[in-house]
Design a protein around this nucleic acid. Structure first.
Length: 219
DNA sequence: GACCAGGCACATC
DNA sequence: GATGTGCATGGT
């Protein structure tokens, strides 16, 4: 029942918007850095920060591990919260080098459940960032939840409004096949429809999901 | 000028 | 365990 509804939503979104080509990043490492930088921030702001790092030829594990945190903060200023994000990147890099020698391939060998717990132990890496790294950088079949996911699911009565991150994640993971490409595209499509039609102040006109049972709760 | 954006940690009750 | 607050730039 819910599974069919989730599939119906996916199909409506894909028919309307097509493939989203996520994650926009050239390397696995770049995707991880982007996952931390995009916390509560518009992606266009993150692109400038990543561009700065590339322009300075610093977007490698070793170079970011060695760079001074204050210089890192200046380079990522456009991403917002730049002081705290510089620390968060450093926290991740310290963990990455201490436990995995700064080698992405070493991360890929770790079971997703264990790696998720380890990522969550890093200060500055919460559930969404951890799951984004697992799915988009490491190709593990975990569903990524974000503010848009919650808004769409609640407005279409797929889950209670007081459901937390894990509840939402379980909703999707238990009703869909554990498919990396499906999870990749589904999350990206939810972000797309969220940006265009499912904003906090509702403006649902033209939304491809309007044919579904629907209650708008602005704010 | 207010509101929003691909969160998270921490304080307080 | 729920709720509130700081973190900050840049686009609409």
């Amino acid at each position: 029942m819910t599974g069919n509804r989730l599939t119906e939503i996916y199909n409506l979104l894909f028919e309307r918007f097509g493939p989203q080509h996520w994650w926009p990043g050239e390397t696995q490492f770049e995707i991880i850095i982007g996952a931390i930088l995009t916390q509560n921030t518009n992606w266009t702001n993150v692109e400038k920060a990543i561009s700065n790092l590339k322009g300075a030829d610093l977007l490698t594990p070793v170079k970011l591990y060695e760079i001074d945190v204050s210089r890192l903060a200046e380079l990522i200023r456009s991403a917002g919260y730049f002081n705290i994000k510089a620390k968060r990147l450093k926290n991740f890099l310290a963990w990455f080098f201490n436990h995995y020698g700064g080698q992405i391939e070493s991360l890929e060998d770790v079971p997703a459940g264990r790696l998720r717990e380890e990522l969550l132990s890093i200060k500055g890496v919460g559930p969404e960032t951890a799951d984004s790294i697992l799915l988009y950088a490491l190709n593990k079949p975990v569903f990524v939840v974000d503010a848009y996911t919650a808004r769409v699911a609640v407005r279409h009565h797929l889950i209670d409004s007081d459901a937390g991150y894990e509840g939402l994640k379980e909703l999707f993971q238990s009703n869909l096949s554990a498919d990396v490409r499906l999870f990749n595209e589904y999350h990206a499509l939810l972000v797309k429809v969220g940006k265009e039609f499912c904003r906090p102040t509702a403006r649902c006109g033209g939304c491809p999901l309007n044919k579904l049972p629907h209650t708008v709760e602005a704010g």
